[in-house]
């Protein structure tokens, strides 16, 4: 799979990364190479194989429904870029929800 500059731009936007034209020129062939390499997977017949999401064949453990956490807001927000009256601040969210 060979990627185009437009593909790379689209992926960068999905991943919320900025790409300058120079970045795109650098990344497009590199990512295409990696994908070409990755496509060696297609050599293998996996039609009879179940996919593995996790190496251990275990099931989800369940937690008791108890409140174990206390208010640590001050500590958490001490390392936040911008807070006011206990809220995290970001540039205005366009109201559509």
């Amino acid at each position: 799979m060979s990627l185009t500059a437009a593909d790379v731009k689209k992926i960068a936007h999905l991943a919320r990364l900025n790409m300058s034209e120079a970045d795109i020129a650098l990344y497009t062939p590199q990512l295409s190479n990696i994908l070409a390499f990755v496509e060696h997977m297609n050599q293998a017949d996996t039609s009879h194989i179940d996919p593995i999401a996790n190496p251990l064949d275990l099931s989800q453990r369940l937690r008791k429904d108890v409140v174990t956490e206390k208010n640590e807001r001050d500590q958490f927000q001490a390392i936040a870029p911008e807070v006011q009256v206990g809220l995290y601040l970001v540039p205005k969210v366009i109201e559509d929800e």
Binding site: A12, L35, V38, A44, T46, P51, I52
Partner: peptide
Amino acid sequence: RRIMIGTYALSAGYYDAYYLKAQKIRG
């Protein structure tokens, strides 16, 4: 680079060819 590759591999239309295939290789 890896975020880009991963984003692409999970994106619509490519999931089966990449991620699911890789999980089968894992098997």
